[in-house]
Nucleic acid binder design. Structure first.
Lengths: 275, 275
DNA sequence: TAGTGGTCTAGACCACTAG
DNA sequence: TAGTGGTCTAGACCACTAT
């Protein structure tokens, strides 16, 4: 607003001598961002369309390039806009969301020769191509959360399967499953391919009657490496999920720690109202 | 990196003639942000402590003010840092999270003369002071999602109670409950104070046997007004929750659309593995 | 009043994309 | 090669906080 600026939004104040109204008193970058957001929400700028370039916005709003850039940055942080270097800024397309319901754990899905691993079955039932990449397989010291669920002291060696799930080719989940060593000894959970029905089927074969699942989750912004690994656009939160599987005797036999891409995920739970 | 810059991180490249390694090749703002993040994660910069000022960072990393500011901006977007104008930038304190479990719907909590509204009971059982502000009470056209749950055509008049929940004085939830008109006719759900046990108790009194709850949610970044209303620090996502309450006959009698502050919320579900 | 973060201008060069 | 977003410097003034 200074430095010999000749921009109209400043001159207007000087020339008219009018105290700008509340809207105009807000920072310029916010006003620009709000106007663009309004156009997105009303559909005047539909998903996938290119925004005016930063240069055009600067000209249109009679401000500097840095100001128009900052306005678009705000929209990126809110997940409304994505930018592709060298091409432009675009109204974000809503990613295809995978729906996670209780029914994805149904025994009928993973039992039997045609059984599928949970992660695969839940994707395919919704028409998504699902892939898994095994990132790590072996013994590690139990992280505190895992140790707590198993009733172990942190650091006790446990078995881990770390994998990245891809949905329609895009990574959407980092999922690390932990098991106590005696539970997986001699099972295919220690092999790369767990076989039909995945880990759940192997646990049942080993004599553990799976009965209950506990899911606990919270939400946060990704760290830089997580954002890179999951290919998250700016302004995309992640979900921290801890899933614990219990046997009929109440023993925790698997703990899964997962980080899910927030823009590809919906959860659904339906349950009776407790007494 | 140009314009007659005399910063050492540039000169180093020129003087040594060495291609910088991968770490150094990354943008300066990212490297600064990463170094600070590492200090936060290792505990060298514990929660609540003030970061070096932007001027100090600029001097320390021998860069411009704008670059150090941008680095701190990145950390704010990741929810690791909050800034207070005129005071400084601070390592973020983890907000006290309210845990939402299935048991918060237990009939024993809202039945009887001492019954509490769900929103209040779930907070108090965890030692939080919970307040509610009623923002709107009356008839509105049914939003599409709500109409879908009730089996109405969108726009049909329905009853709404819009309220803001505060936990320990901080707003953490915008919760709008919708009802079909014939369901609330003549009940205290149309009054400001719904009475002991809240809406659930009134529905049961009116002859609806509440049986099941469906919760569906997804995650996103807040809009500017939501961020302001909920007092969200930068880098805080929100949770979109749709809760539908069904009677024993399968009728949807209440639909609640809520927006929850992501930094104050944990969810927990425990359920039997379906056949 | 001094210090700190917030907004903004002005302008350079780099990295990537498309024709 | 032209166009677009990304990074960065340099410096001004404003808004808020503490002393």
């Amino acid at each position: 607003m200074v430095n010999g600026s000749v921009y109209r939004h400043v001159l207007a104040d000087i020339v008219t001598g009018v105290t700008p109204d509340i809207t105009d008193a807000r920072p310029l970058q916010l006003r620009i961002a709000d106007e663009i957001r309004a156009q997105i929400e009303t559909g005047r700028l539909p998903p996938g369309i290119q925004l005016p370039t930063l240069d055009e916005l600067a000209e249109q709003y009679e401000c500097s390039l840095a100001a128009s850039r900052k306005a678009v940055d705000l929209l990126k942080q809110q997940g409304l806009v994505v930018s592709r270097q060298g091409r432009g800024n675009f109204v974000r397309q809503r990613a295809s969301a995978r729906r996670h319901g209780i029914e994805r754990y149904a025994k009928s899905r993973w039992r039997g020769d045609a059984g599928q691993a949970i992660l695969v079955a839940e994707g395919e039932s919704q028409g998504y191509a699902v892939d898994q990449i095994l990132r790590e397989l072996g013994e590690v010291p139990a992280p505190p959360v895992v140790a707590g669920k198993f009733g172990l002291t942190p650091g006790t060696p446990v078995w881990v399967r770390r994998r990245t799930t891809l949905i329609d080719g895009r990574p959407n989940q980092l999922a690390d499953s932990f098991y106590e060593l005696d539970v997986v000894a001699g099972t295919r959970i220690q092999r790369q391919d767990t076989g039909p029905g995945g880990g759940f089927a192997r646990l049942e074969e080993a004599g553990h009657v799976l009965a209950e699942i506990s899911e606990e989750w919270s939400v946060r912004m990704p760290t830089t490496p997580e954002g890179t690994t999951l290919g998250l656009p700016a302004g995309t939160p992640v979900i921290d999920l801890t899933r614990t599987t219990y046997t009929a005797t109440g023993r925790a036999v698997e703990v899964m720690l997962a980080v899910l891409a927030g823009d590809m995920t919906e959860f659904a739970y339906r349950f009776p109202i407790p007494e």
